[in-house]
């Protein structure tokens, strides 16, 4: 699935790196606990979270994720957007809650990261 399609499915807004929305993503991880994302140890292309701070972007970079989706209408502040732009991480934001985001994306073929 392309990030663009994901954006449509989630009725999401783009906050950083709109040029990367044409890229493909295959697997995702979802958590509000970054240590849990690290513990999963897989290779997520997408990180779905309700947590809003720059560490989310750093975690995405360290895990080689190319897209972060903030759920529940969270709007990333300038520090997050700036770090994401610098790091080349595409940032989306949706009003949907995490459970719904995971359900929609999984139903459309986005796998769980392994």
């Amino acid at each position: 699935m392309k990030i663009l399609e994901m954006r449509e499915l989630l009725a999401a807004r783009t906050y950083a790196c709109p040029d990367r929305t044409r890229e493909d993503v295959a697997a995702a991880a979802a958590s509000d606990m970054l240590s849990d994302v690290l513990a999963m140890g897989g290779a997520p292309d997408v990180l779905i979270t309700g947590l809003l701070n720059p560490q989310v972007i750093r975690t995405a970079v360290l895990m080689d994720a190319r897209c972060v989706v903030f759920v529940r209408g969270k709007v990333p502040g300038p520090a997050i957007v700036e770090l994401a732009e610098e790091s080349g991480v595409c940032v989306l934001g949706t009003d949907m809650p995490m459970y719904q985001v995971c359900g929609v994306l999984h139903a459309h073929g986005l796998a769980a990261a392994r």
Partner: peptide, 9 residues
């Protein structure tokens, strides 16, 4: 609050 401190370190 930053997503750490979950005892997984």
């Amino acid at each position: 609050q930053l997503g750490f401190g979950g005892g997984m370190g």
